[in-house]
Amino acid sequence: MINSLTDILATTILYMTPLLLTAMGGLFSERSGVVNIGLEGLMTIGAFTAVITTLETHNPWLGLIAAMIAGMLFSIPHAVASITFKADQVVSGVAINFLALGVAVYLVKALYEGAGQTPDVQEVLRKMPIPGLEKIPVIGPALFDVFPTTYLAFIIVFIGYFVLYRTPFGMRLRAVGEHPQAAETMGVNVYRMRYTGVIISGALAGLGGASLSIAIGSQFSESTIAGQGFIALAALIFGKWHPFGALGASAFFGFAVALALKGQLIGLTNYVPSEALSMLPYILTILALAGFVGRAEAPAAIGKPFETGGR
């Protein structure tokens, strides 16, 4: 029983990592007032780039960095369309998802003679136990013997909180998402802040994708991401657009995944089908939005294009 609990806890931590990284990315974009439905696509391109880079360089750390850069690059069309061209941000995000999956699978086929997936990466990221702490019963193996991307995710939550709520940059970013005209009259460059927010979201979502493809998994195919980006979006909303909220929501959603995967260990799947557990995050997010599980309040100017001098 103890072993099963450890297993479920470890699986939770494992699967919350990509969600958390990506939700933190979405946080920066949406706090600046730009909806990012394209997180799914940005994860996809990150996952793809990480695998390709690691296959070529045999260095997963370079893979991580490349994934971040690719995520940033692919977030730029979204930024240009929705900030400069004032296109509908949801439409633009949908297009990012099309684009990223199309480019990634196209390149896989082009590079590997029509194959639907990349070869396996040998030099994936390995779990990094923290000496001493990993020996703690139950939580030790789950929390302190994990992939480096997991430590990174937790660090990013705290840095993200600090940046958003303690620095001038963060205050300006949030102001731009709440009332861009006010921020502009105070000399804040709304366009630059929003571009920055979207590009940070690309970097972190790219990292989130990489954590799936070269840590949890070891290759890339069309189904590597399979909706994780949308769950991350749900975690962001369920977490009420706050770093610690996103942390809690990601943990909870990761737990739902763990139950769906490992439910048979504790006999859960005898009573509840795994699909029902997989649905849980989405149902909860709808309930949260409808105000049944605490009201989720979006940044006031989210989704609205900004025009200089306008009101």
């Binding site: 069309p77 369309a81 296109a87 439409v91 633009s92 949908v94 297009a95 990012i96 099309f98 684009l99 999956l101 199309g102 480019v103 699978v105 196209y106 086929k109």
Partner: peptide, 12 residues
Amino acid sequence: EVIRVVFAAIIF
């Protein structure tokens, strides 16, 4: 999949 890219570009 290049067609998906064409779709995406058209949407943009």
